[in-house]
Design a protein around this nucleic acid. Structure first.
Lengths: 263, 263
DNA sequence: CGGGCCATTGAAGTATGTCAAAGTTTGTGG
DNA sequence: CCACAAACTTTGACATACTTCAATGGCCCG
């Protein structure tokens, strides 16, 4: 990890943590057979693997699951059989609280691999819901761990992806535990911007696929506070907001906002 | 995972999530050669593996590292070479914030395996410090992933341990994001109590190895609030506190406290 | 085109952070 | 072994960021 920028990537997705691809294949990951032509390939499971190394994925039968907006890819409590890699679209992960309400634990963009948290109990501890029409690859966990026997680099990639999620959660924890709400919202926007950039989208203009309430739940605050923070940023000229449409007019100002007065 | 009690194990350590041992060896995990005689064995890496399965750990040279109170086992930014399994003593994990102050990201008891968060970047993103004189096993990560080639169950155990930490962080996140400070402190005490029980210590009488400030940092609040919460519990007769010595007089009342008025 | 969801904004109440001071324990060095 | 210093904890008073409650308006989808 590049520690000089770590403070700016507080909420970066797991994929953002991957080291650069080996020099041999500088700008694109080696294609696993089923992955050829997938737009998310370079941020997904085969990322960073050589062609030879990715060959062991031949043995894995990868299914595709189309999910409509609002529908669940898997639900809390379901048996754990697959890891899921986002092909396109956006997902949220949620966990039910005692009270019955939902806590949002993550947002997932193309290339993200979901489901590592199910390895403990063989049940999914969260529900994954599509925030727009989306598609994911279903990776049979059993076959995947079998494939790991052959290729050391795949073994390490699996643990790396799990570790990436761990780091992401730790940073979110630090953010929520130690900053004020405006800084959290700023960090959220910066993180999303960075993830959009990494996926080839505009880092300064994008559509929020989640509601203010979902952002609030994720950041440990209320929808009103999120809305007020966005309005405050807009008033100060950092951003333009119109409903879900976000334009980041001054990324540096936003970064400064996020870095100020930490305890 | 047992979902009926999940709400009570909010902060449970990774080890707490392991499924029961196979019927063949009901009450003790199969010994890896170096692990024979280790008190933490049943909650550690070889937990749940059969004797045959644990044999592949032969090839792993396990070193022991003695650490005095206040000293670091590894530091943030150091190269990632080993996972560490706690033999005895208590550790805290901390990450430096922008401001230079430390955020506590976890407490680790015997049997806990630390370091999975380093798999992403090949650097430790946190510092592990002993809260009392302690000892840990250093597991060479490279050898460990090699050993995974042979044994499927070891591969799964590795991912399971990483996933356990993930679940723990997610629950802590939900706790901090969605509860008031007294509930967090109650949950912290309950979690510690549970972890003590799992390790064969008294679940109702134990010594806190961490300061109020460290608890506060971990729970996203201040040392004063932690102190006030403990005093409040004591005043209501749920617990007795004397400095670091804790006696849980009424576990059920504490659970009720923790479960009340979630949003 | 209408109903429901979503977002914005205001006003008021409150939990908790902050500042401060005193007491207690632990550790250290003479 | 004692004495002093440093670190930790407790408790109080005050300030404030944020939640809560409420009302309005806009947008989208059926």
């Amino acid at each position: 990890m590049d520690f000089t920028t770590s403070s700016r990537d507080v909420l970066a997705a797991g994929g953002a943590q991957l080291p650069p691809a080996p020099a041999r294949t500088p700008s694109r990951a080696a294609p696993a057979p089923q992955c050829v032509g997938c737009g998310a390939r370079q941020r997904c499971l085969p990322a960073g693997l050589s062609e030879h190394e990715a060959r062991c994925l031949h043995a894995v039968t990868i299914g595709r699951r189309r999910v409509r907006k609002g529908q669940a890819l898997y639900r809390e409590g379901e048996r754990f059989l697959f890891l899921y890699a986002v092909r396109f679209g956006t997902f949220k992960s949620t966990a039910m609280l005692n009270s019955g309400s939902d806590q949002v634990t993550g947002f997932h963009l193309p290339g993200d691999v979901m489901g590592f948290d199910a390895t403990v109990s063989n049940r999914h501890p969260t529900t994954a819901t599509a925030l727009e029409d989306a598609e994911a690859c279903a990776l049979p966990y059993s076959q995947l761990t079998d494939a790991c026997a052959e290729e050391r680099s795949l073994r390490m990639q699996m643990l790396r992806l799990a570790g990436a999620e761990l780091v992401r959660d730790q940073r979110l924890l630090a953010l929520i535990a130690h900053t004020h709400s405006e800084q959290r919202v700023a960090a959220f926007l910066l993180s999303l911007s960075q993830r959009m950039r990494e996926r080839g989208f505009s880092p300064s203009d994008f559509l929020l696929r989640m509601t203010r309430a979902e952002i609030g739940s994720y950041l440990g605050t209320t929808l009103e506070t999120v809305s007020r923070s966005l309005s405050a940023f807009a008033r100060r000229g950092f951003i333009t907001v119109r409903r879900r449409q976000i334009h980041l007019a001054d990324l540096d100002a936003l970064r400064a906002e996020f870095e100020t007065d930490l305890p």
